[in-house]
Nucleic acid binder design. Structure first.
Lengths: 333, 333
DNA sequence: TTGAAAGCGATACCAT
DNA sequence: ATGGTATCGCTTTCAA
């Protein structure tokens, strides 16, 4: 490795002061056209690239946004991540990405992130204790929760209206005359699941249905497959299953078809939640409650910007409505 | 936001010098147990978190690894990314992640990354010009290509042995008595495709087959679906299709089944390449050439480490063999 | 407009 | 083992 090129080298080469070089590369300042030209030329000649580390140290801004992702393996999240990366790239921000190790407490990784003094922190599908959120805020790092919320926290949050989505699916099943309905839950301690389930069961009750089957999974494919197998081998086989995630819904469809030789939707209707890319594949044609990812991401970025510009703004929770996407996995529509 | 807490604040509070505080947080140095205790206590009390920016400026190391990813939307890459994140997290390194915008030249985003003085750069499924690689090296930033290689470049590279994989699939089809074989290509200008195709066609020739069908896709699901539709509606319908990616293979299976009512593998055998998670789902049971992602990632990290420790080490290309995974989409095995 | 000089918050070398 | 101090590479006053 050759000697590192700094703005001083460029200054010497261009016959100007180091300050002037700095001004050229921070754009804003006005510097005489001829000098600017000489600086640029010298920089190019020497292969100079400004050092963002040094810049961050003085400006107190890194232009880096931290993103914490829980599970990249579920096909829904890569899409979310991709969107975030696109947005941030367009804003000329860089992205420092973190995943939690299995069973690792998200709270524990935050200090690692804070060491790097990110300008803001986006946390998807994981909750943070109010203490750690406050610690971030204390350091001037806004926190925005994506698809999770914590009441009475100082963190902003953007979330699909999961309860409303659950109600809509209940309506869908009942409107199409299904008699024996089942729900396959995600982990019962995460709000994404509980909200969907709450909306679903509230609406069922409102419409006079007081009993239905329930199995619990973990949002992943295999758990949906297994849960559906348990449900569909019962003597009182359900004729409709609402799965708390698309992933589980696809598993449920495969269990019905390949595990038990049933037809979907003729023998059993299946609905999901998320609308991940595979939901539209011919093999599945899954009817599902779509999360409006693009809108959610854009909203998250907006909240982030607002909070960066006015750190004292009050935290808000933005609920984004889901969109019911009718395909072929629920009969009678 | 309160005043930022620095090591000086901690030093004052603990009644020691700032140097001592620094020593406590950089671990290595020995400092008297009682002082260390006082420092830790003061730090905790003040909510002090060391500033990695300032540290990087003096140590000339950021502990950040840059990763450039081309397409997160293909289900194969999130898995790769997840593995990288895990490995790097275990090494206490942070990850700065970049994706290229559609049609954006990867070369153009490298300077943005270099500004942040990452300790190394991992580039997946994209090539870099030799000039830009040399520029990185000049700045002491090793470059490791993942699943792509550039001959005569100074970048290290880790790649599946795509040619060998292609040969193996040719063997598989011929050993199982298929007569009319077809190949669905990815973009014909990327080495991942050309190597697979080259191995495949070489072996076909070696075994006396000189003619076969060919369609071109883009590695994604839809293109596989469309290409398979074109192939399977020909009068001389192929009885075996080798797809350059699992994604396209799944599309091909769906096209055969749902587009044309054919059975897989009875009417047509289909093989893929990658072994992404869905390949094992009951709906597909795809026979495919698996890329050994864990091994590839580990190898990449090893090369990276070696290059960081000895910047003058010669660049190497590591070929990782694929593993043929026999499931149910090819008949006769 | 331009240059000189004072930080930013650590590390690391040099004394003690 | 501990403290003082120069240093990393920039941005940002302050004067000129």
């Amino acid at each position: 490795m050759a000697k590192r090129i700094t703005s001083i080298d460029v200054a010497v080469q261009a016959g100007v002061s180091q300050s002037t070089v700095s001004r050229v590369f921070s754009d804003i300042e006005k510097v005489a056209p001829d000098k600017r030209h000489r600086v640029l030329e010298a920089a190019n000649q020497l292969g100079y690239i400004p050092n963002a580390i040094a810049r961050s140290l003085t400006t107190q801004r890194t232009n880096i946004i931290g993103i914490v992702m829980a599970n990249l393996t579920s096909p829904f999240y890569p899409y979310v991540l991709e969107k975030f990366l696109q947005c941030l790239r367009d804003m000329e921000k860089q992205t420092l990405l973190f995943t939690a190790a299995p069973n690792q407490d998200i709270d524990d990784i935050i200090p690692h992130i804070m060491q790097h003094r990110v300008d803001a922190l986006i946390v998807t599908s994981a909750t943070l204790s109010t203490e750690i959120v406050d610690k971030c805020l204390h350091y001037g790092i806004p926190v925005i929760l994506f698809n999770r919320y914590v009441l009475n926290s100082n963190a902003n949050a953007v979330c699909t209206d999961n309860a409303e989505g659950g109600r809509d699916i209940a309506n869908l099943f009942l409107d199409t005359g299904h008699q024996n309905i089942a729900y396959i839950a995600g982990q019962s301690n995460v709000s994404t699941n509980t909200d969907r389930e709450k909306g679903f069961s509230d609406r069922m009750h409102e419409r006079g249905v007081t009993e239905w089957l329930r199995e619990e999974g973990d949002f992943f494919y295999q758990s949906g497959y297994d849960a559906a197998l348990r449900l569909l081998t019962r003597p009182d086989r359900p004729d409709a299953i609402f799965c708390a995630s698309d992933n589980m819904a696809l598993g449920a469809i495969d269990a019905a078809r390949y595990g038990l030789g049933l037809r979907v939707p003729d023998d059993v209707s299946i609905a999901g939640f998320d609308d991940m890319p595979m939901a539209s594949w011919p093999a599945y044609q899954l009817t599902t409650m779509a999360q409006q990812v693009d809108l959610m991401v854009a909203t998250t970025i907006d909240l982030m910007q607002a909070k960066i510009e006015d750190p004292d703004s009050k935290p808000v929770l933005r609920l984004i409505p889901g969109r019911l996407v009718i395909r072929g996995s629920v009969r009678g529509v």
